[in-house]
Design a protein around this nucleic acid. Structure first.
Lengths: 151, 151
DNA sequence: TATTGTTATACTCTATAACTATA
DNA sequence: TATAGTTATAGAGTATAACAATA
């Protein structure tokens, strides 16, 4: 196998990772009544606190219209509420319900569990090399993406 | 940073990879008039040759109805045609047009270019460790996914 | 009877454009 | 004028269920 072939094989492996990790996430979220996009919104909310829809649109890199739909769905299913903005009457603050906050914590725990499952028992030096190369690859990939894309 | 934290950080990095690689792919495919799902279908066609829609549905892990829609789109935009199955009059054989075959080759070249971009210049031993750990992680992930899921 | 692919219906995510209420 | 969010409209991907043609 040539060097080029080994590189393509590594990319194939990363692509398979994308598919498997994506599929696994989709299914596990569906069990909680969530989609990937809605979970992404909850994730941002977790890290930012109550936020306007405009802020969420920029954070997720989607249109304002899309956020309206996502918040509609999350409000109907009881994960968030729309609260009036204290000073700007045009804006709403998307805010967790108790259920939404609890589910988000559960997601965070699930993430820790998955990380243990995937990496536990790998010798520290090998794990270190792995994350270093992965970091380098990510740096190259970020440089490749037209700036101002996909938060 | 604890060991557990480092593992979560590595998983975060892989999640970012999923997002960036996915976004990059989506955009580059859009320039060719394709979506991720349609490209996935072309990819299977490339590796299997002319196939029935039933076979494609199983390969992509989606319903027969979804394949009808994907083939409709690809036929309208001139990537594939539906040809009669030589022996089973219920079935159709999805087949590349010249344009479809050419675009698929272009995609394959693009994949090689991306692999070079991401991995070129990384010392062989580090690259080797990286793919070994990645392979181990993939093995664990595959074991985790309920069997008979996401080809 | 079983299988292939379609039509019918529905939900989610996405976008642009036009519009309302507010800044 | 500019901004926040909505309604209107449209396209894509996904699913299940009912149905036609064929095996």
């Amino acid at each position: 196998m040539t060097v080029a072939d080994r590189r393509v094989a590594a990319l194939d492996l990363m692509m398979e990772l994308v598919l498997l990790l994506g599929g696994d996430m989709t299914q596990s979220l569906a069990r909680d009544g969530l989609t990937v996009s809605r979970a992404h919104l909850l994730w941002e909310l977790r890290h930012r606190g109550p936020s306007t829809q405009r802020v969420l649109a920029d954070a997720l890199g989607v249109s304002a219209r899309t956020i309206t739909g996502l918040v509609d769905g999350l409000a109907t299913t009881g994960f968030v509420t729309r609260e009036p903005h204290p000073t700007d009457r045009r804006a709403t603050l998307v805010t967790f319900t108790a259920h939404g906050a609890q589910i988000t914590e559960t997601m965070e725990r699930g993430q820790r569990d998955l990380a243990q499952l995937l990496f536990a028992g790998i010798p520290a030096d090998r794990f270190g090399h792995f994350t270093e190369v992965l970091g380098e690859v990510m740096t190259r990939l970020r440089a490749q993406i037209p700036p101002g894309e996909v938060l």
